[in-house]
């Protein structure tokens, strides 16, 4: 099976995958929802979704062999977008529950959200502040047409701490400031749910589809 020109949503059984799929279809992206290595391996872009606990997500991803596949695709230059827990999985490790190693595509760790006096999980809309990484080509392209301070919809108890400040594309605040969009080259992540963030979220997904269509791929893609 081949899915050239499509965006593959990795289906490892956690999260509201249907909403991500429908939002991408709304912005006229071709999309497949699958754990199939051939489909994900031949896609023009890969989305790592997810809702739930980090260690369980990594267990499922490893059991399906998706950890190696996602890393291989990232290495080949295929745009990767992690959403919510999926963004956290891109990092090296998490302190959630018993702790777990992540996919390690971005440097840094995932730690509890510090929100003294506020209710956790953080659920709701929060405006973005653009950070240094915003100037970086791919991360910036994700925000094409989106103005600073636009609110997006978040549901999370943990936050990612990129080790490289330049990999922080946008932040939001809830008790404390945290990573909202991260990125290095073709590896991107959003802590919020673009598929639930109304017109701005759809725009961000459309931007990701454009990034996928324009991606320059290394020789490793020839499969």
């Amino acid at each position: 099976m081949n899915s050239a020109g499509t965006i593959a949503i990795c289906d490892y059984g956690m999260g509201n995958l249907r909403s991500v799929e429908k939002a991408l279809e709304r912005v006229r992206a071709r999309v497949v929802l699958s754990a199939d290595h051939d489909l994900i391996g031949s896609a023009a872009g890969v989305i790592v979704p997810g809702v739930g606990a980090f260690p369980e997500a990594m267990r499922r991803i490893r059991a399906l062999g998706l950890d190696g596949l996602i890393a291989e695709r990232a290495e080949a230059g295929v745009p990767i977008l992690g959403i919510c827990l999926g963004m956290q999985l891109l990092f090296e490790s998490s302190k959630e529950h018993e702790g777990s190693a992540g996919l390690g595509l971005l440097g840094g760790s995932v730690e509890p959200l510090t929100a003294v006096g506020l209710k956790v999980p953080h659920i709701g809309w929060a405006p973005l502040r653009f950070e240094a990484g915003h100037a970086e080509a791919t991360g910036g392209a994700l925000l094409e047409g989106i103005v600073e301070a636009t609110p997006f919809y978040f549901v999370h108890s943990y936050v990612a701490h990129p080790s490289e400040p330049g990999e922080l594309v946008a932040s939001a605040a809830y008790g404390s400031r945290f990573s909202a969009i991260v990125g290095r080259g073709n590896v991107l992540g959003a802590q919020f749910h673009p598929e639930k963030s109304s017109a701005a979220g759809l725009r961000l997904l459309a931007n990701f589809a454009s990034i996928c269509a324009a991606a320059k791929l290394g020789p490793a893609l020839a499969r």
Binding site: S19, R26, Y153, H193, S197, S198, G201
Partner: peptide, 10 residues
């Protein structure tokens, strides 16, 4: 299902 197909807020 029909809402999720067409509406992109929670």
């Amino acid at each position: 299902r029909r809402t999720a197909d067409n509406v992109f807020i929670p």
